[in-house]
Structures are given as C-alpha cells and as structure tokens.
C-alpha cells in the first residue's frame, strides 16, 4: 500500500503540498481530483522518488521512499508503472521499442521480452501499430503506448497522470474501460490523478480531493456526490464561482 504521511513540498516561495496525507489501499482504484496546477503530478513524482519531500514522506509497502539507496529505489521503481500525462514516449523509437525499454533493464531472456512486449501492446490494442513512431500516431494511441510500456513490467502499482486529458469523449470512455480492465486483469493497485469528473466517477473505488496542498475530502463516489462541502461541490459540478 502507498501511504502519504504529512507531505510538504514547496518550489521557491510557492507552497504546493502543505501536509498532504492519504492512504492508497491495495487492490482498489483511488482517484485524486484537484484543479490544474494544484500539485497532482508533484504528488505522483514523490512516490517514485523523482521529487524529494521538504517534510513528511511517502511510504510504499511500509518503506520510506526518500530513505532508499540507489539500488533499493531501482527495485521500488520496478514495482510501479508510471503512465505520464503526455505519454513521454521516446520519440526516436517505435512504439514496440518504447515498450521494450523497461524490459531491457531486467535480466529476462529475449523470448520473454518479446512475448511481454507483444502482450502489452495487445492489451492496449496496438498490435498493428507496433512498428510506428510516436510522431506518426494519434494522441490517444500515444497514451495507450505509454500504458503498454508501464504494464509490460508487470507492476503491482500503476500511477496514472491525467489519463483522459486531451482525449475526445468517446476515446476518454474507452480509456476508462481500459483502466478498469487493466486493474481487473492484472490485479494492480491504481492511483489515478485527474480533473475529469466523469472519468473519476467511472473508475474510482475511492475519490480524494486535493485542495490547497491537503486532502479536502475523501470517500466513495456516492459519498462525494452527496457531500455538502461547498469546495468539493463546486469542483464536482464545475461551477465557475
């Protein structure tokens, strides 16, 4: 399980996280909602040690991430698939080569690498596009290739950074289904970060709202819909004021 313990982070004078605490239980999908620029990506980056906290910390399976040494951090990262907002594909490589990149770091026989690459691409419906370059495919396909690259490592956790942003409504709904199917078939624990409420209700077993650097509210989709907290209501209903 992933546990955020009173996480503080600032960049210069700008306080982004101000005592963020949240539990992400195993075997479920937790969705973190929050406005653009509220610090959702910053939270995800702390889980894999891409950013270090100013105070507090993140525990993954009971171990404090920022206290790990280099080898331990590499071992932790193998357990965690990170789906980047912009897909972050390596643009000099084909989609299949992108998926292979992570596998190439593990001591696996070539046949295993090839079959895992094919499986991951098939899982996201990209078998036919394996040999194409990121610049040659649509934004939705790039996102799915990013997912294939993450799941090829057979991670226990998947972190999704705004998986539906920039997608049309139909493609978004397809993405929601892909997220649910991935969690069910691979048995992964998911933490999804988004400001797309339709997607949040569709995939979230639990929803937490980030506001001013802390968790403002947390509960099931039903509970969040029924809340009387004006800040949460405003965000869910998408009212300007």
């Amino acid at each position: 399980m992933i546990r955020f313990d009173n996480l503080h982070k600032r960049f210069g004078a700008k306080v982004v996280l101000d005592g963020f605490s949240l539990d992400v239980p195993d075997g479920a999908t937790t969705v973190l909602i929050g406005a653009s620029g509220s610090g959702k990506s910053v939270i995800l980056k702390h889980i894999v040690g891409l950013l270090q906290p100013d105070a507090g910390g993140v525990d993954v399976d009971g171990r404090r991430v920022d206290a790990l040494d280099t080898e331990e951090l590499v071992a932790l990262r193998r357990q965690i698939g990170y789906v980047f907002q912009s897909a972050a594909l390596f643009d000099s490589m084909t989609l299949a080569e992108n998926v292979r990149m992570g596998l190439a770091r593990q001591q696996l026989p070539e046949s295993e690498v090839a079959s895992r690459t094919a499986d991951a691409l098939a899982h996201v419906g990209l078998s036919d596009a394996a040999g194409r370059y990121p610049a040659e495919v649509s934004g939705g396909m790039r996102k799915r290739a990013g997912i294939a690259r993450a799941i090829a490592l057979r991670p226990r956790y998947i972190l999704w950074d705004e998986p539906t942003s920039g997608l049309d409504p139909v493609t978004s709904a397809t993405m929601d289904r892909l997220m649910r199917r991935t969690a069910a078939e691979l048995g992964t624990t998911s933490l999804v970060v988004t400001h797309d409420m339709r997607s949040a209700f569709a995939v979230g077993d639990r929803i937490a709202m980030l506001h001013e650097g802390r968790v403002r509210a947390v509960g099931t989709g039903e509970a969040m819909r029924a809340t009387s907290d004006p800040v949460v209501r405003q965000f869910i209903e998408g009212r300007p004021e």
Partner: peptide, 16 residues
Amino acid sequence: TMKVTEQVDALETLAY
C-alpha cells in the same frame, strides 16, 4: 526537449 516532455522522468522510472 526530453526533460520538458517528461522523457527524462520516464527513463528514471524505467530504471535508467
């Protein structure tokens, strides 16, 4: 360009 498009972060998460 790799940095601002998160490709450098992606390298790190893939254990490079």
